[in-house]
Design a protein around this nucleic acid. Structure first.
Lengths: 344, 344
DNA sequence: TTGAAAGCGCTAACAC
DNA sequence: GTGTTAGCGCTTTCAA
């Protein structure tokens, strides 16, 4: 198979110039002045022979692969990439698009037990890396040491020298809780993912507590439910709440997918949302507007997050900028999952 | 930055051997017999210096990049990758995992107007390509000509010489329709994506018509609704059906996401599912079991599809096999969206 | 059992 | 303005 692949030398010969000239033209180097007619000859030869540059060879010679790595969490079994959560799909889609516009391609890889992401990055000569929602401090330290530009997405408390993009998670928690309080709720629960020392969930918790304090409401540990961010945990929790007399009149849930499960569980347990219990979510993805009842939730702009992450890595690679820490705003989207309580 | 990256030559020097020897050892070449002690020396040097091979350089020398391309449809605006449909996320996740186990990484790229995927494949020296759900005949022909192993997923009527994996779409349509008929329905609609000459939707339509014919039921063009596979189109269609007196008692919908929108539209239009109208979907993804009512649907195994696709490209690359056409089975999952009609 | 050296396709001094 | 040439880091004949 494979008719011999034509390369730069072929073009040089065809156009009667040297490979250097071809290279200059292909790379449109502003520091090299080439005669228009030479350019024309070369471009014609390229077209005629159907030449496509070999980026691998270019990377080897120029130490610039135009490859970006996207590192996302893996599933519980520590194997497959967590694309079950549509958040990551949206992120990838926008990230790829933005990167492609600037000439970069995306390499997707999970990690195996015997290989850190750092190895993948080096093997593949990645120009830059975007890490979303994970906290592998050791890897990140190594990455920095090796000098691979890295951007952290949704990470707190990590290296401040690295560029990062997050949303205003604390404010999200605050807005949700304030809203609930404004609707007359006084016992407000929080359903969340695991509360690591530093992470989005912890930030959202902070906002929640701040709002409570703001109104002199006590914070009550019994109303804080923490587990995995998953439909399943939501379902379980919903069922449990439905069967418990000591339940809050509203709950702020730190992810739509979790809220989705929760509401399902609540219903299964015989409760109505929002008649019997109110729910506010977080994300405002596809699910939120389409579940029943439509979910009142905190909206974040995933597309923008992805776009900015791409810009930040590329800026870092091209040494335009370093260490920007971008925080995107959030807002509350009012739908039908919260009931207004009439106070006595 | 960047402490000089250590390479094979460094290892060779450190271990007191030649780079050829290092290469043999790293690649565990069975055709080269190396003295155990030499192996040990080299392995120690590798560990000591923290050497990681440069796959780009290896690809250049060996014409084997261990990079696979995954080509998925782009959104209407022809720009971003269509990861809004969770099907692709699941596919990617499993595909990547399977490929990684065999030493391959995945390159994700959309295409721009001025560049075909073929160019990406050549530029990046992809070893193989998996194309899912798209029909770019010209590209595929070129790919074959260039000699890049290609696997087609969910494509009909394309080149039979290429490996492919599909599901038994026709049977899916048949099963769904037979089931509806068995439940007493006699006027059965079909809601589908665009009916291209050859594609999954057309196959599902065939199965639908076959079941109707099987029972002497007339096929009525008025009951075939075709548009985009999207929540939005489903919603629109649902609303429309709800307002129309001439509506079927049941409808087979060729995608869960479409069924989801349809049911929503139906409800908005004042109809109850399944009391007023029954629905059967296709895919059995996350949505199906979680919408209300839970959707009776045709189940396909996306994970398996992805795994097989990975195996097939890799087999083709490693010349183990050629042109396998795998067809995966489907089955019906009974839930709550179909009502049993009592015949008079 | 190991090594020397050519070459994969490209870039980037440097020379002309 | 353009060409020569030495690498980039690796594989692979061929010899020893």
């Amino acid at each position: 198979m494979a008719t011999k692949r034509i390369n730069m030398k072929d073009i040089a010969k065809e156009a009667g110039v040297s490979t250097a000239t071809v290279s200059y033209i292909i790379n449109k180097r502003s520091d090299q002045v080439i005669a228009p007619q030479t350019i024309k000859k070369v471009e014609e030869a390229i077209k005629r022979l159907g030449y496509v540059p070999n980026l691998g060879a270019r990377a080897l010679a120029s130490r610039h692969s135009y490859l970006l790595g996207l590192l996302i969490p893996q599933t519980e079994k520590e194997t497959k990439l967590m694309f079950s959560n549509s958040f990551y799909g949206s992120f990838l889609s926008n990230f790829e698009y933005e990167a492609r516009k600037k000439g970069y391609n995306i390499l997707i890889s999970g990690t195996d037990v015997d290989e850190s992401y750092l190895d993948v990055a080096r093997k593949r000569s990645l120009d830059g890396i975007v890490i979303v929602g994970v906290e592998i401090e050791s890897d990140i330290k190594d990455l920095k040491q090796i000098g691979i530009p890295t951007v952290l997405v949704d990470s707190y408390g990590m290296d401040k020298e690295l560029s990062s993009v997050t949303i205003d998670d604390e404010n999200g928690g605050f807005l949700a809780t304030e809203y609930l309080i404004g609707m007359g709720h006084r016992t407000i629960g929080l359903a969340t993912g695991y509360l690591t020392k530093e992470g989005v969930n912890t930030e959202r918790l902070k906002g929640y507590e701040k709002a409570l304090a703001n109104h002199g409401l006590p914070k009550d540990g019994r109303y804080v439910y923490s587990g995995t961010i998953s439909y399943e945990y939501g379902l379980e929790l919903g069922l449990q709440l439905a069967g418990s007399p000591e339940r809050p009149s509203a709950v702020f849930v730190t992810a739509d997918i979790l809220a989705f499960g929760l509401i399902k569980g609540l219903k299964k347990g015989g409760l109505k949302v929002p008649e019997d219990i109110s729910v506010v979510g977080f994300d405002d993805g596809f699910l939120a507007s389409n579940m029943e009842p439509a979910l009142t939730t905190i909206r974040q702009d995933v597309d923008e997050k992805a776009r900015i992450a791409a810009q930040l890595v590329i800026d870092a690679i091209e040494e335009k900028e370093h260490g920007s820490n971008i925080v995107l705003p959030v807002s509350l989207v009012e739908r039908e999952s919260v009931r207004k309580l009439v106070l006595n």
